[in-house]
Amino acid sequence: MEIGQNSIEKSVSPAKTTNAKSLRLVVETRQTNPVKTFSDSQTTHSPLTDVPAKIVIRDMNFFYGTVQALKDVNMTVPANKVTAFIGPSGCGKSTLLRCLNRLNDLVDGTRIEGTILLDEENIYRPEVDATDLRTRVGMVFQKINPFPKTVWQNVAYGPQLQKIRKRAILDDIVETSLQRAGLWEEVKDRLHASALGLSGGQQQRLCIARALAVNPEVLLLDEPCSALDPISTGRIEELLHTLKERLTVVIVTHNMQQAARVSDLTGFFLLGELIEFDDTKKIFTNPGDSRTEDYVTGRFG
């Protein structure tokens, strides 16, 4: 827990802030009440606190039946940054990601403790509509999953669910979403062909476009490049760079180089625990925990 506190001071660039006190000030002027409480919290890892927090996870435990998959996770995901989760298989990265848009609600026998705040609101309050939440927090999956429909229908799927019926509006959304996903030039002539005819990399970017079409504030990506070749991977990584201007990105990755390349912050998980969460550069050059060091240098996992 000390680590987090230390890392704040070390990680923040000296040009912007000089000490912890001014840091606090920045936070207070930008955000109102609840933020103060979490930044006060001793247990919250919150590097880069000069940036408004988008998601705050506090004292979170997660259970599949009796098996505990996440233990006492605390973290603050800053807005308009790319946050990466790394760690060996089965350490709970996907589970945490899926908690952020309540996709785990649908798995029988799961239980969650603690709170997850999105823009200061607990998304697990009973009155929160999970389907609304999921339009705010979009997701791209490890297994590339365009629907067996046309390209157009795939992208228009989300907007249509929101009862947008006008063809012109939908066309517009489809075009901008595909452009944001960097896919428009490649598919503009085959919008009405099956999405399953695209290459793997195109399909994954289509899935990103599909998620962007509902204008989410947060985009969750669960190992989006694990089935792709290096060139397609590169294109998606570039894409993440541009996307973070407009939204908050959380990416799970197995590939350490990828985490180092694309993310601003990195969290390292081990056996359901968040071991270290800090500026990416620090995690990869000077980690605070020996286990993190072992992992990023490839000594285990």
Partner: peptide
């Protein structure tokens, strides 16, 4: 595939 269901739910569809 489960991914189709989750993909759809993830876009804000109800069950």
């Amino acid at each position: 595939p489960r991914e189709y269901r989750e993909g759809s739910l993830g876009l804000g569809a109800t069950k």
